[in-house]
Design a protein around this nucleic acid. Structure first.
Lengths: 235, 235
DNA sequence: CCGGCAATTTGCGTTAGCGCAAAACTGGCC
DNA sequence: GGCCAGTTTTGCGCTAACGCAAATTGCCGG
């Protein structure tokens, strides 16, 4: 539970427009904690005791149906907030958050939110922007699922992951955390089998290089082309 | 551009916690306008000059792809806000809003938002809740599209519409605005043909009664059963 | 009351992608 | 160094739903 240096987080959207002193005051209410790879930060349905800011690592937010099917809502990258249940009026987490890599998160108790917002109104507007952006992204996802075929959706998903969490190598862009075929299937609304077939295909064309929970985009530009080609008819 | 009576809107989520005087001050900045059936309130890509509150009628928000395919993002019911582009940091509308019935909307100029929020901070937190709720709904939609088959998705969509804008009749619940098979297809990620087949089927079983842009749920409970039956395997 | 257009229905062939099953592979761990 | 569990690959048959086409219906305007 070491102290967090305000200058490390000052540039984040959440804290846009705050002075260092204000930041310090806000950070005083939070505590940081480590989450080893594959451990849950919180579980769907659990009481929303805290909201979080990811400092290091990567976290997967996933939603499960009563019958056990899952979808990946998103991958959280360092600097992003998650578990904002209370800000949007929920008392329980609507999804499960799992560290996919050893991660460090900063957590504020849910109860601190109203006080913080009252004292620092920009927190609300900044959060509104963040949530709004996520709403846009979710709508885009619906649009893609409605109008594109699986191969294009997978292409888009990988390109987004590369953009968000890509590590530049000289021979391509690597997605910087462990991700399985199953995960990608759950991001794109398909099955791990289909994802596997698609990636095998791409691999034999030299578009990607992939292995166990590991994907490198070797020809990002060609994947962009794949993503954008409109298969065929209207809807 | 008649004046709006504060007491008419005081109960809306957007205005939770405001006094009548405050409300009047807020309403002073808005003007109302009529939109005849099938006219656009604003178009996707257009500059976000205003944000809106629907007073009467029904508005469809739809998103179009570069290639012309559309999805219905949502139907706006009276009392709901829409076109909140600026609040979430956009300068252009991300969707097209069309009145599906003769409608009356209240519009604030985009430029008034920062000032209003500064003067009335609860506006931001109320809007945050609204946008958060929509985010949840969108995630639910993604979940359904990923895990359910078309018939169940259509069932869910109709039940939601009935809940939001259903008019109780003695022989069922009627969706209270004109809605085509095409519209339902665009809400559920399928084609108008498939929707038509499904509704025909239901009609012959007496579950619904439907006609041109008109749907009555005759056996809501049986449709709930349809919606919930998990067709088969996991994903 | 009629003409015309938009919405709806329905048939039929096609197919993208699922579901199941089995085999092959990979890494981590003891 | 070898075993084991989780991940990935691949074959094969199947079907839900699409796509196209044509007929039908219902509504609105003149």
């Amino acid at each position: 539970m070491a102290k967090v240096d305000p200058s490390l987080v000052a540039h984040l959207p959440l804290f846009a427009g705050f002075t260092n002193d204000e930041l310090e005051e806000i950070l005083r209410e939070a505590h940081s904690s480590r989450h080893p790879k594959n451990s849950a930060v919180f579980a769907q349905g659990e009481d929303a005791h805290s909201f979080f800011l990811l400092l290091h690592g990567h976290v997967r937010a996933a939603k499960t149906t009563p019958t056990g099917e899952q979808i990946v809502v998103r991958y959280v990258a360092p600097g992003e907030t998650f578990g904002l249940a209370m800000a949007i009026g929920l008392t329980q987490y609507p999804a499960t958050a799992t560290a996919v890599d050893d991660s460090v998160v900063l957590a504020w108790p849910t109860g601190a939110w109203p006080r913080l917002v009252e004292r620092f109104p920009p927190l609300a507007t900044n959060t509104l922007q963040t949530v709004g952006t996520r709403l846009q992204e979710s709508h885009t996802r619906v649009l893609e699922m409605s109008t594109q075929q699986v191969e294009q959706r997978v292409a888009h998903a990988l390109l987004r992951l590369a953009k968000q969490s890509g590590k530049k190598l000289d021979h391509g862009i690597e997605i910087d955390f462990p991700i399985s075929r199953q995960d990608i299937a759950q991001m794109t609304g398909t099955t791990l089998h289909t994802v596997s077939r698609i990636l095998s295909g791409w691999e034999s064309q030299g578009l990607v290089e992939s292995g166990r929970q590991r994907i490198i985009l070797r020809e990002p530009h060609k994947i962009v082309v794949l993503a954008e080609q409109s298969a065929n008819g209207e809807r």
